[in-house]
């Protein structure tokens, strides 16, 4: 029950709670990173095989599943890209609106 897979799902939900409970635009991006960490943990745990070794073909021992690990390198880089872009946009937003509170962005603007 208490293994990486289940904990990863819980970490994702913690990130989701952060996304709903904060109104600060920087904190939202941080919560997004928490959720991303949950996904990374999920994939890394999926690649884990009990009793196996790291995926280096130096001996004849059974190795871990390398595919989820390599997908995670892709995800980490995409995550970095999105986070950086989000922070840049949040900075511009702060300069435009004068506040970091996302719930105030809709005030005083009739559609």
């Amino acid at each position: 029950m208490l293994n990486g897979l289940n904990i990863a799902l819980l970490v994702m939900l913690v990130g989701l709670y952060g996304l709903t409970n904060n109104t600060n635009s920087i904190k939202l991006i941080m919560s997004l990173s928490v959720m991303g960490s949950g996904v990374i943990l999920l994939f890394v745990s999926i690649g884990y095989i009990p009793g196996a070794e790291a995926p280096l073909m130096t001996s004849e021992v059974m190795t871990m599943d390398p595919l989820p690990h390599s997908i995670m390198i892709t995800l980490i880089v995409i995550n970095l890209a999105t986070t950086a872009l989000g922070l840049a946009i949040a900075h511009r937003l702060y300069k435009s609106y004068g506040t970091l509170d996302v719930s105030k962005y809709f005030e005083g603007d009739d559609e």
């Binding site: 109104t23 600060n24 904190k27 970091l100």
Partner: peptide, 8 residues
Amino acid sequence: EVVKCSTD
């Protein structure tokens, strides 16, 4: 530039 901002 470093901007001082209040937290929510």
